[in-house]
Design a protein around this nucleic acid. Structure first.
Lengths: 219, 219
DNA sequence: TTAGATACTTAGATTAATCTAACAAATTTG
DNA sequence: CAAATTTGTTAGATTAATCTAAGTATCTAA
């Protein structure tokens, strides 16, 4: 069984591979806030246990087992986040820290009960998919708001970044998942966009923000 | 902040002091399934941090801070057990293992929300008191069933032992907290007692069992 | 009251996870 | 393409928590 530390390495490897492709030792070290020698020796350890493939000076690659193990940790994390929001009254900006701890609990029934109580959710409070009990992940094909056209109407479905600061920024503008956004205009100079939603007055959103909002076109 | 390991030592010291009075290094080592040298060196460490008072070859004594810290860990454990039973559908015989892990989570809000959702309970699913947020413990004066007289009617209020095996034994006989028991007779030879409750036929309970059932007389 | 048993401590080793310093390989760039 | 930079590795130390072996203190009981 993987230690908490090992689980964290697997999770980082999975997430980094997902949004960068190849993962170097330094990517991993940075992501986990450890030194490169530390990451290096842990990768060797993970390799010995069959979770990753690795050759000196080459990128680190999760094996099939490694991917599954990582997905199951992410499953526990995201189920926990959903449970905290839907069942315990936490805000979506408050759940990450707690879920980082609870994801390492070894108690299948605990997470099975969460899953049942939540009605077997497929996404977490930030719109990220929850891997199933076999470690399979449903991939969604959402677009960043920044890639949408003026005049389009879209629904906010997920985020590419779930930092507390960004979530608090969204809270301040009453932006939440499920919201329908009308795109009124785009500023050519800085790629900022003017959008409206609900009965709010129109809002200007910077390019940085628009890149982090994932949407799907309303049919 | 105490590590998980340190929290476990504090908890053991608290529980042992509670039901034995003085706590020796070997009591502690046995209770935590570690060797005496391990317990010895951890006690020195706890002493340096001000959680325990200790002199070579003398019993280990929790300081006021140590008692409070221990009580707060026990609070997290018992709140968790109650949450698992009342909100997540666990049986009282299933919660210990999970609570042993969750008690080490550092997230005040998580436990505050449990407390609120449970309506600020004062006992856990086995009838043990839940320390308050200041680490104070309400003491109950329950009696073991074994000390009661024939003819008395009593209410089952707590247990002195909460091992899975004992809880499953009680489940098998539909014995649960809150139940009213009539004491019909006691066998002089082995101190076993015949009791009835609900609409069940009378049951014979061994001395071992009677010692572990805590009751209060019905007024 | 001292011999034997039990309890406790010290010394030293081990493992997991981390670090810094120093060196080596790979990549980038003038 | 060679120098400079970046990235990765090795070596060796550290810390927390554990162990075993060996020695010492305390207690018990003949």
């Amino acid at each position: 069984m993987a230690s908490s530390t090992e689980e964290n390495y697997l999770k980082s490897l999975f997430n980094l591979a997902n949004d960068q492709g190849e993962v170097s030792i330094s990517d991993l070290a940075q992501n986990l806030h450890v030194s490169m020698p530390t990451a290096n020796s842990m990768v060797k350890n993970l390799q010995k246990q069959g979770w990753v493939g690795y050759e000196k000076y080459k990128p680190v690659i999760l094996t099939q087992e490694g991917k599954k193990a990582a997905a199951l940790v992410i499953r526990k994390h995201r189920l926990t986040e959903m449970f905290l929001v839907k069942k315990m009254g936490f805000g979506w900006e408050e759940v990450h820290e707690v879920a980082e701890q609870i994801e390492h609990i070894h108690a299948p029934k605990f997470f099975e009960r969460m899953d049942e109580m939540l009605g077997f959710p497929t996404i977490d409070p930030h719109g990220s998919p929850i891997p199933d009990a076999q470690g399979r992940i449903q991939e969604f094909s959402y677009l960043p708001l920044s890639s949408c056209k003026v005049g389009q109407e879209v629904q906010l479905t997920a985020l590419t970044n779930s930092s507390t600061e960004f979530l608090e920024f969204l809270n301040g503008r009453a932006l939440r998942l499920g919201l329908n956004l009308k795109i009124h205009s785009r500023e050519a100079y800085d790629q900022s966009m003017v959008v409206s939603y609900d009965d709010h007055p129109s809002q200007t959103l910077s390019e940085k923000v628009c890149e982090r909002l994932l949407v799907r076109a309303i049919s």
